[in-house]
Design a binder for these strands. Structure first.
Lengths: 346, 346
DNA sequence: TGTTAACACGCAAACGTTTTCGTTAAGAAT
DNA sequence: ATTCTTAACGAAAACGTTTGCGTGTTAACA
């Protein structure tokens, strides 16, 4: 087992000083052609690579980005990571991932674990519990200590940092307007509880679309799912809530759901109630993931361009890291949504 | 912006030496009760946290695990990551993720990027291109340099390292035997090209099941999909290949597919050809992901327990990292598959 | 021959820790 | 009064780099 070779070892072997070896490898003009070649040859032979940790300590930069997300088994978040990794890697950065699992304390612990020198900056999406608690001290602290943050999707408006969001309001509005254009008059909304910022915005988009087409919104048509039904193995609860919605309002002819799962479950319930899609009732979901394309019928969705969000987040963070002196003001980038029409709409 | 405080700064403020501060914080008996309290109070006030990078350099351990996977937007891999992160975090480790995107060179580059001190060990699943090339020098080098590797799912048998695999052979066999038990006599196989180790093993399981029930295997019933059709937006090619299979063999009454996507596409084609599922034709797929549960009809699958694979991989790696002196022999852990029956089978 | 400039290299500090090994002073023991 | 012990702390090395600066050697020049 030939261990990693260090400058010191090379220096000893070649009877020169450590500094000389370092300079020779970096092609410093201070070093003679002779020794430079000798050192480089030796280094190549022994496959010398500078130790990242030592470099990080010296430069006070790790070239590593910390990502904190609520959940990784989720098409949206994994696409964001892919986007981040793509541009990070291109610029010589690594990404280190922490999962909050929607829990406030895990979010805090993960951030503290990484903030002590392991990374140069954060890209994160807030956990639901944090939004509920409204305790943001870990974000403020990180920023105060000079560790920049980029928030995406689930952002906190009070926190001064770069943000990348999707236009949830407009996206939802576009979707509902599409339903209206296709003849829907009684459109239900399946959404989350209000403390999830994106859910709230999408709800507002839904209301706005109705309003601008003089359709009266009805509280009975809005179903707010509590998060206990979000888990993959709690589908029955979700479905029975939806079933109640349909039974209480048998004349629903359109459904807008704030995520794929809600939309698919709703379609399932509709089929069970012998409604045909899209003739009797049409569906549009938010978030264009794996499920929508392969559903039967395939689901029309509002695509968030998750990978693009990741790419943009990484660009913002890296730019800030590499132009620290300039202290630019924080920006909020809005990624356009795109309506993808499939067979769940006419 | 109060920057991170260091031992040196505390030492200066309190007019003691750096060493004293360090000892005081670690409750060394060398330090008087008096100064110990003073130092600890000061440290708490300024929220002192030891710098991870400095510790890594000193201890020659980073407490970080490198994960290299072919793709992150994939239910299986993200579940594995979740498992790894779970036990890693519990044991005080971080995880840093590199994506090979199924490319050999990206796999190599990512590993080199991490191997220079950034991590203590790898958990990885080989890219397809690497399996095709059969060039494993980056694995051997890493191991030779004392950086342990744990391979999962797509493993290389020649490489001496811990491995976590699923029993692809038995899993496939169980699935096919289930089809046979439910009355299928003409069972097609939709699989990958042979260089993907898991695809090969699953194919062998299929053949073995047929053989042990005296059913003759027919080459015409085995469809090997080339990887160019694996991308999400190349579904048409995949579907037309499957359609040909069905048209050439109209009496197929069972299909075993080595992944979810193939199975779902096959079901879609079957529906298009006016076959009813599961009466006319039954389906079982490998890998229990998001799609299977939500397909119509829901797809029976062979579950790989991805998260458990991740957990086991992390346990193996961390155990080896923390018992380096003992030089235990390498083990291969087999995670049992589980047949999950849904509505695509009778 | 003496001065100077360029060249080639070594030294040492710095990044932030931990830890071993002194060192000092006070008090106890002889 | 002298030696010994012990408590409490400081100094310095080490982890692996990079880099500014000092220095010795050589060759060129006056």
């Amino acid at each position: 087992m030939k261990q990693k070779v260090t400058l010191k070892q090379i220096a000893n072997e070649l009877d020169v000083s450590i500094g000389t070896v370092s300079k020779a490898l970096r092609n410093s003009k201070e070093i003679s052609e002779d020794t430079r070649q000798k050192v480089q040859a030796f280094a190549k032979l022994y496959n010398y690579r500078p130790n990242n940790i030592a470099l990080s300590l010296k430069n006070r930069k790790t070239k590593t980005i910390g990502i904190i997300i609520p959940e990784i088994v989720h098409n949206f978040f994994s696409k964001v990571i892919r986007g981040i990794e793509l541009v990070a890697n291109k610029k010589g950065y690594n990404v280190i991932v922490g999962l909050s699992n929607e829990s406030f304390s895990k979010e805090v612990i993960n951030m503290e674990m990484l903030a002590n020198g392991s990374i140069d900056g954060f890209i994160l999406s807030t956990s639901k519990q944090t939004m509920l608690n409204q305790d943001y001290h870990h974000f403020t602290e990180s920023i105060n200590q000079g560790m920049p943050i980029v928030m995406f999707d689930r952002v906190i408006s009070e926190i001064p940092c770069d943000k990348v969001i999707v236009d949830d309001f407009e996206g939802a509005k576009k979707a509902v307007e599409q339903l209206i254009a296709k003849g829907c008059g009684k459109i239900a909304l399946i959404t989350t509880k209000d403390y999830v910022s994106v859910g709230k915005l999408r709800t507002q988009g839904y209301l706005s679309a109705l309003d601008s087409h003089k359709i009266e919104a009805a509280a009975s048509l809005i179903l707010k799912i509590s998060e206990e039904y979000d888990s993959e193995d709690q589908l029955e609860g979700l479905e029975s809530e939806i079933e109640n919605l349909f039974k209480d309002n048998p004349d629903i002819d359109g459904v807008f759901a704030v995520n794929e799962l809600y939309a698919l479950s709703a379609m399932k319930v509709a089929r069970k109630l012998n409604k045909t899609i899209p003739e009797d009732i049409q569906f549009i979901g938010f978030t264009d993931g794996m499920l929508a394309k392969h559903a039967t019928p395939s689901l029309s969705t509002v695509s968030q361009h998750a990978q693009q969000m990741g790419e943009k987040s990484a660009e913002l963070l890296i730019h800030r890291l590499e132009h620290e002196e300039e202290e630019e003001s924080y920006q909020t980038v809005i990624i356009e949504t795109e309506l993808i029409l499939r067979n769940s709409t006419q």
